[in-house]
């Protein structure tokens, strides 16, 4: 009976994952490998293709600032380039904020989560969402680039690297992580359980009542362990390997928040989405 409970928990979380996250790993890998009846994604590999591809992106326009254009053509081009980079960054923020809502809905579906102290629910989400978003981003990535805009666009890693500092440095750690994480070959049902484990981390700073969180996590951990054994019978120590990724994730999030702080200091036109601002304030 206990194993049956753990299996039904895995099933419930997988169903919630499919309901809340629009682009699954199965779909993303089909797009990346060209095994889908949908159109191939539009490829963004330079500034020109970024401008062309912008029409695909749900881009929230930011107001242009009146700056005195210097006479040289190259500086006008460089102004335009800065504007396009910033606009792209803003569309990434909008998508991230939407994704935070999806993660929140997923968290609410974890049995027992809504019975936790409301302050603890907020703390768990605050600390987990960026980790979850990075995990969710991994299936969209390969060593050459990443799907964006719900899989309609493929942006090359080289192009992202070519953006000016610190934009150009922001995605590299995520690619490095993703390439290694994807080698574990988790599927969507494994991912659903792993995300729940991340959300239910009892060691987040400022939690008021750790015990019920740890109890919930322990149950999901048992379910994940059993599920991985059944779903990947030939993959040795997969459970331990998956859990080890949680340490890498924390470092990546801490570096990411640092990048955002640098951006806030250096970019006059930067405004951070209020939800992301709320999450990143006093986070590490």
């Amino acid at each position: 009976p206990e194993a049956a409970d753990l299996r039904s928990l895995a099933k419930l979380l997988y169903e919630s994952y499919l309901k809340n996250f629009p682009l699954t790993k199965a779909k993303a890998r089909a797009i990346l490998s060209g095994k889908t009846s949908d159109n191939a994604p539009f490829v963004i590999h330079d500034m020109k293709s970024l401008l062309e591809g912008e029409q695909f992106i749900n881009c929230r326009q930011i107001p242009r600032q009146d700056h005195h254009r210097r006479p040289s053509v190259s500086s006008v081009q460089s102004d335009l380039q800065r504007e396009v980079e910033l606009r792209f960054f803003h569309s990434c923020q909008s998508r991230s904020a939407e994704a935070v809502s999806e993660v929140t809905e997923f968290a609410k579906s974890i049995p027992g989560f809504l019975n936790l102290d409301l302050n603890d629910q907020v703390t768990l989400l605050k600390y987990a969402v960026i980790e979850v978003l990075i995990i969710m981003m991994s299936p969209l990535m390969n060593k050459d680039g990443t799907l964006i805009s719900y899989g309609q666009i493929f942006m090359t890693r080289e192009f992202l690297k070519s953006l000016r500092k610190p934009f150009g440095e922001m995605m590299e750690p995520k690619f490095e992580f993703s390439v290694k994480f994807n080698m574990l070959e988790l599927d969507d049902s494994d991912m659903a359980l792993f995300l729940a484990v991340i959300i239910l981390s009892g060691d987040r700073p400022g939690l008021l009542n750790v015990k019920p969180i740890e109890d919930l996590q322990e149950n999901v951990l048992h379910s994940l362990e059993l599920h991985l054994k059944m779903n990947h019978p030939d993959s040795l120590h997969l459970f331990a390997k998956v859990l080890q990724k949680m340490t890498d994730l924390r470092q990546i999030v801490s570096d990411h928040v640092h990048f955002i702080h640098v951006l806030k200091e250096s970019e006059i036109n930067m405004c951070l989405h209020p939800l992301l601002q709320e999450i990143m304030k006093d986070l590490y």
Binding site: S101, Q121, L125, K126
Partner: peptide, 19 residues
């Protein structure tokens, strides 16, 4: 929760599926 008003609201909103 005071400093996390949006997260708080997202948590308290009932999802469309819940009616």
């Amino acid at each position: 929760t005071e400093r996390h008003k949006i997260l708080h609201r997202l948590l308290q909103d009932s999802s469309p599926a819940d009616g």
